[in-house]
Amino acid sequence: MRVLSTVPWTLRRMSRDYLVLLLLLGVPIVLLSLFSYLMGNAMAESGRLLFHDTAQQMIMSFQLFSGSVVMSYLYYDLFTEKRMRIFTLPFNKSLYAFSIMLCGTVYSLVLGVLLMTYAQLVLGVVWEHWVWMSYNLLLLSVVSSIVSLILMFSVRSFKTAERLTEIYGVGFIVLAGLFFPMPDNAVMNFLGSYGNPLTLSDGAVTAMANGEAGEAWLQANVLAAASLVLFPLMLLLGRRKMR
């Protein structure tokens, strides 16, 4: 398992990628602080701080873009000029690709947890279920990574894949109705509920906070099932592309 020896270095590389840190940590911190200031102590119908729900959705939303990190590292290591050197190394290339995916997912989870910590310690949001929220951040990150890789393996140009992942991220935020209300019809309702990873993870966390454990597990399991269904497709396309 020579690939294991690369994991600390991949994580170190990601943690030193200042552009990613700015986009997935710096920008959310600024936005969270701004929204906290604007919303003040306004209360929601649920009796919680209105900002609590906003912070939760915002932290979840940024997980949708975590796949871009995985995609970019995988691309630069296995599909650019580095490819030739990596391919001569005595390890399994598919496992190396998988290790990058895992590192990206863990890295994204850590950034999400840092945002949660900031929201709680600095902005006064009290997270009822840290572990459950983290679990859902992880699921969202896994699904986003898989979707991003499927997009990358499916198209010729990396630039196109980047644009598609942006559409995926922004698209599901829009479909979740976070920017403006969506039309009320069956398709839109599905894409704004069980067909939307962001709504699923957000719904799972909210349901658990409201004491509806059954509904919370249902939503989280749909997300987990989505990743299980998409994973073989990603594997198939990835193996074909790496050949």
């Binding site: 590389r13 030193r16 000029e81 580095k82 030739m84 050197r85």
Partner: peptide
């Protein structure tokens, strides 16, 4: 390799 294939972050 002909191209420089080192990791800039390390």
């Amino acid at each position: 390799t002909q191209e420089i294939t080192v990791f800039d972050e390390l």
